[in-house]
């Protein structure tokens, strides 16, 4: 493209920029935030214990383990769809954890999310480090972006969205179950098989989780496209147009929803884990 007498400037070397602001701060915060979540999430997934809390008549389930397809060995959460720990789990793998079977779905949804992609490409791969800041020189003309393997798989984001929507329903049901206690407000057990509506601190924690996840999932760029973004004419399609407007509204703050839901889902696991381990007492509000 260059004319004979003009040439493209040489790309700047790693970190080189004329920017005088703290351009490094946001990628650093993303690196620390996402890094901490990945480390904690991995640790929590391998624990295979303290993932539910039945104390005080409550019925709390950690969102890291929901839905429970099979319980972990030696545990009965009351949430397992298919019963006890699977006997077919290969012995050469780490001890079975219910989280292993399900975390790929929300993990894949976040990994392929348009917001997170932009954020972690900068924070983890320096591609680029930040806007108008020199990036590692080794890619040069070999840059492939999301055009070829492996990142071409980012295009399947919409399929992870379908799973994420199902998870939203499941986690909402978990929040519903967290509102029903086998004890009354004073802590006295109810007759066998009876439950009473109530709210504990854990109920609020588990209720906030699908609300924030809903704000994130229902503002997804792919969902926006699917509901009506692919259309060129909105008139005559009132339902799809209304859905498009709703998704667009949430989409404007997609990054904020992404972070709030990420932090809260980890906090919900921490809360259930600490309550289950007896480190904290869940307070029954009524």
């Amino acid at each position: 493209m260059a004319r004979a007498d003009v040439h493209l400037p040489q790309p700047r070397s790693l970190g080189k920029t004329s920017r005088s602001d703290a351009w490094w701060s946001r990628p650093l915060v993303v690196f620390l935030g996402l890094g901490a979540f990945i480390v904690y999430g991995t640790w929590a997934a391998f624990q295979a214990t303290n993932y539910f809390y039945l104390g005080g008549g409550a019925d709390y389930l950690s969102p890291f383990y929901s839905p429970v397809l099979f319980d972990a060995a030696g545990h009965t959460s009351g949430h397992a769809w298919f019963g006890a720990a699977p006997s077919w789990w290969p012995g050469f793998l780490p001890a079975f954890s219910p989280a292993f079977l399900i975390l790929w779905a929300p993990g894949g949804f976040r990994f392929t999310c348009y917001y997170y992609r932009g954020a972690y490409y900068k924070a983890f791969w320096g591609d680029p480090l930040s806007c108008a800041v020199g990036e590692p020189g080794f890619r040069g003309n070999n840059y492939r972006g999301e055009r070829k393997l492996p990142l071409i798989f980012q295009n399947i984001h919409r399929y992870f969205l379908y799973f994420a929507l199902a998870f939203l329903v499941i986690l909402s049901y978990d929040a519903w179950r967290a509102m029903w206690f086998t004890t009354d407000g004073s802590g006295a057990p109810l007759p066998e098989g009876q439950k009473q509506f109530g709210v504990g601190v854990g109920t609020l924690v588990l209720l906030m989780n699908p609300i924030l996840l809903g704000g994130y999932t229902l503002g997804c760029h792919s969902l926006r496209h699917i509901v009506a973004g692919r259309l060129n004419r909105f008139t005559g399609r009132p339902v799809r147009t209304a859905a498009y407007d709703c998704v667009s509204c949430l989409n404007r703050r997609h990054a904020v929803w992404a972070w709030m839901s990420l932090i809260w889902v980890a906090w919900a696991d921490v809360y259930v884990r600490l309550a289950s381990a007896g480190v904290i007492n869940d307070i029954r509000i009524f």
């Binding site: 348009y114 992609r117 806007c131 492939r144 972006g145 999301e146 055009r147 071409i152």
Partner: peptide, 9 residues
């Protein structure tokens, strides 16, 4: 368009 990696710059 696959080269775009959504940096939002």
């Amino acid at each position: 368009i696959g080269y775009c990696n959504i940096t939002k710059c």
